[in-house]
C-alpha cells in the first residue's frame, strides 16, 4: 500500500473491519449488512463520481444515482463471490469498475440514439415546415417506400408519439426512429433535386 505508514495502517484496519463485516453478511447478519452498506455506499458514490468526472462528456449526471444503486445491487447479488481469505476493497472496486464500464458502454449507445432523436429529427422537422406551399406534400410522400411513408405520416402528420407508432405498427421504437430519419433524408434529397 502506498502513502505514509500511519495511513497504510488505517487503511489496513479499515480493510480488516470491512472484511469481517462482509463475512458476517455472508452468514446473513442484518446489522452487519446495514453497517457495511452505509460505508460501501459512500465509497461507491465517490468512485462513481470520479469516474463520471473522467468521462464527463459521455454521461448525464442524473444517472449517477442509478449507477450507484446498480453497483450496490451487484454487490448484493454477487456477495457469494467474495472470498473471506482475500481483501474486501479490491472486490468492491473490481465490481464497481465493471459496472461503470458497462454503464458507459450502454450510455454511449444511448447517447447515439439521443443525437438521432434530438438533433437530426428536429432539424429535419424544421426543414419540412419551411417547405414552400407550392410543393405537393402528398406527392412527395408517395415517392417514399411504403414503410417509411406510413410511419412518417403517423408521427409527423397524425402526431402520434414514437411509442404509439411502435405499438401500432409492431416495430421497435428504435426501428421507428431510424425509419423516420431515413424517410426525412430521402425527402430532403428529393427536394434538393427538384
Amino acid at each position: 500500500m502506498s502513502g505514509p505508514k500511519g495511513e497504510s495502517l488505517a487503511e489496513s484496519q479499515n480493510e480488516q473491519r470491512l472484511s469481517l463485516l462482509m463475512r458476517k453478511v455472508q452468514e446473513g447478519d442484518f446489522d452487519s449488512y446495514s453497517a457495511l452498506l452505509l460505508e460501501v455506499q459512500v465509497m461507491v458514490e465517490s468512485y462513481v463520481k470520479n469516474s463520471f468526472y473522467r468521462f464527463r462528456n459521455q454521461v448525464v449526471d442524473g444517472h449517477q444515482q442509478d449507477l450507484v444503486q446498480d453497483i450496490l445491487l451487484a454487490l448484493h447479488t454477487k456477495r457469494h463471490t467474495y472470498d473471506p481469505s482475500q481483501y474486501f476493497l479490491p472486490w468492491v472496486y473490481a465490481i464497481s469498475r465493471y459496472k461503470v464500464i458497462d454503464f458507459l458502454r450502454t450510455s454511449k449507445r444511448r447517447n447515439a440514439h439521443v443525437e438521432l432523436d434530438e438533433e437530426e429529427l428536429v432539424d429535419h422537422s424544421a426543414l419540412i415546415e419551411n417547405v414552400p406551399a407550392t410543393i405537393d406534400t402528398a406527392a412527395m410522400l408517395k415517392t417514399l417506400p411504403e414503410k417509411q411513408r406510413k410511419i412518417l405520416e403517423m408521427v409527423k402528420l397524425e402526431g402520434l408519439s414514437i411509442a404509439e407508432a411502435a405499438k401500432r405498427t409492431g416495430f421497435s421504437q428504435s426501428d421507428i426512429k431510424i425509419t423516420i430519419h431515413r424517410a426525412i433524408k430521402t425527402l430532403q434529397s428529393n427536394l434538393k433535386r427538384q
Partner: peptide, 16 residues
C-alpha cells in the same frame, strides 16, 4: 428505501 430492500432481502450464502 433501496438499502432497506437490500437488507430485507439478505439471506446467508454459501461462498464460492
Amino acid at each position: 428505501k433501496f438499502l432497506d430492500q437490500l437488507i430485507n432481502d439478505l439471506q446467508p450464502v454459501k461462498t464460492f
